[in-house]
Design a protein around this nucleic acid. Structure first.
Lengths: 218, 218, 218, 218
DNA sequence: TCGTAAACGAGACGGTACGTCGCGTCTTTAT
DNA sequence: ATAAAGACGCGACGTACCGTCTCGTTTACGA
């Protein structure tokens, strides 16, 4: 079995040694990237600017990420992780990363969506989330990564909760939960992303009602 | 009232005389912009590239548009207009710009959504539409313009059709059509924009069924 | 005869239109390059620095010169030209660009060499001349250009003066003037370039004496 | 007197312990530096390149030399030393490091200069010698070191030989040998360094003749 | 019908950021 | 304990486009 002295990444460049990576720099880069996106917007956020703000050489960024979009992706991922951990601490003993199940699907979904609305309005989350979404629209690999690492896991929580509701007989058994969740999640996403309408707690409540009960008369 | 020899736009620059504008150049610029977005993608499409390909001076672009996003917006608007006119010719005597009303809402909606799916898969439409959507996500004024000039009018057609369905008693009267349409339009939009899932005729059919009948058992 | 719409330089890049070149920028670049070489030395003089000091975009330098060495070459050539013109004004009616001929070769050569010594000590000339010489040593094309455009013409003046001396019988007819001149010019050049010894009026006087009369006893 | 555990050089850094220096590494660094200068030229020879080629850490270079110029200087000095030792072996019983004295100054000088011409044409010597000369032109301390350690000793040999000639009555007693030698050495040096003309055995022979006999008629 | 003023093509300009290279220092790893 | 390996902060490289600004050259209008 041949020893592999200098492993190469897909780009053909020798892969850097991750074990010797500076944790300090990584944190500073995450912080700088997030702060800049909030302060000056994504298009005016430059790799050079991130490096300067983080007190880091440009090469240190290019060594570990292929583009500013990937930097922001990991920074945002890290931010979400931290937030999730903090949230988990508050509700000790409870399953983290799950939509609560009080027995009332409608109420549970409304609660989660209200929380989501609040989050989408917090500039600290909104700016990077919007930037990543925009980049992903036009950059398919990044878009798919965004889906795989952020959107997907979140959507899975809805799938799980809807499955539970099906078992409880609150949702028809022949419904595909993966599609069903889009009836209330996607409208919110589109209003937020494309300014197709205002978002509010009232609005998401209505979405849940419409989706669960349908538009046609009974 | 004082004579105004060289009227100035809000930017303080003398407004160009639109009457003397070269139609030839405008067309060439539209064609070049759309072609480049399809061929090399939006981020690699540059004003310089558009000018070169259109055989036009850069200033001719900057004279009439403030940014490449606006150029593309108008180019795409123009493209949509042309396409709509062509489509209208095929169905003479019928109201253009409307969702057909056969009396069966579900069928009508499914038909329109199937057509939309086809369009979203045509690279000639997809590339510029995606580019504008992405730009609009991160550039609010442009996003709102995109909504006002393209998305809005399209969505209004759904509102009209849903209103007709309400009058025909096929949809509950207390439903807000502006929100209702999002139950089947937004999921498609999100899957397309964010790669959250595959899009197909089957999928949109399912969306219409779910939306009209709801998820909960009757 | 084919029209040549976009002539290309040897580098394969379209040649810029010299007619539209900014004289203002060129002057500013010359001045900045010379000043920086004097102030911070050649190795610390950067294209970026020249551009910044000249108030010019980097591309304006790269558009017209392939390297900082070539910039400095032309700047120095320009400086020499100006100096020569100023000098020529002072001695109206006299042939410019020539070594004076008073009939006494030894005296004439000593006078020119003394002037050269003075020039080599003037930092405004020394710094760029030294920089170009150094670069030329290790960069053959540039070295040859330096020889062709600066050194060569100067040495030719010695050839001319020595020929006159041969006709006047002050120098043997079988002597090759192109080689002869090196007996007093090259020693000065080497002392200056390589710090092999101090340079002074006395020293160059001695060189002329030794060269004309030889080292062996008569 | 206080014990000094880690003596510090003028730079304030702890002086490395020369006794523990790796002879192996030094040799590898010399070889790599010389080879690179020959192969890619001095400007493209980098400390990183030398280290990589020598299979040595960069720090091992920086520990012992302040710059790539100094590395090359010592490498070249070492090369010259080796060459001189090899040459000395061939002529056993004779004084090493001296210009032969056959009684005929002209012949002896011509012989040495012919050998020098040959050396200057050997790429293994030419490339590093030229590199060091160029660096020395623009970097005064290095230039003076080059003079002190390489050029000076070589020139001294000429001084010695010329003194002998003066005692033998072949050269006038009032001649300064330190200046005299420049009449034939410097022209060769300048032609070589600055491409002011071709170098050949014929050329150096002529230089010796001109220098010894002078240019003026007797 | 002809001048003339505007729009036009071309592209040079002052800039900003790109992604890369090499510097000289510092740290880790594996003898 | 030493030295290879190489990550780091830094600064310059040479390139690509930005948006502005002249340049002549059409072009179309109104005198």
């Amino acid at each position: 079995m041949a020893a592999q002295k200098s492993p190469r990444s897909a780009s053909g460049r020798p892969a850097p040694d991750a074990a010797r990576r500076s944790e300090r720099s990584r944190r500073a880069i995450y912080d700088a990237a997030l702060a800049l996106v909030v302060e000056v917007g994504y298009p005016k956020t430059t790799v050079e600017g991130i490096a300067a703000r983080a007190g880091v050489g440009k090469q240190t960024i290019y060594r570990w990420w292929p583009s500013k979009a990937e930097v922001l992706m990991e920074a945002f991922l890290d931010l979400s992780l931290q937030a999730a951990e903090e949230a988990a601490e508050g509700e000790a003993g409870q399953a983290p990363y799950a939509i609560p199940d009080t027995g009332d699907v409608a109420a549970d979904l409304k609660a989660v969506l209200r929380a989501t609305v609040d989050e989408l309005r917090d500039p600290r989350y909104e700016a990077p989330a919007r930037a990543l979404a925009a980049e992903g629209v036009v950059n398919e690999p990044l878009g798919r990564e965004f889906m795989a690492r952020l959107l997907g896991p979140s959507l899975q929580l809805y799938v799980d909760r809807l499955r539970a509701a099906q078992e409880a007989g609150q949702i028809r058994a022949d419904i595909d939960p993966r599609i069903a969740l889009e009836l209330f999640v996607s409208p919110l996403a589109q209003r937020w992303l494309q300014y197709t309408g205002p978002i509010s707690h009232e609005y998401t409540d209505t979405l849940v009602d419409y989706a669960l009960n349908g538009l046609a008369p009974r």
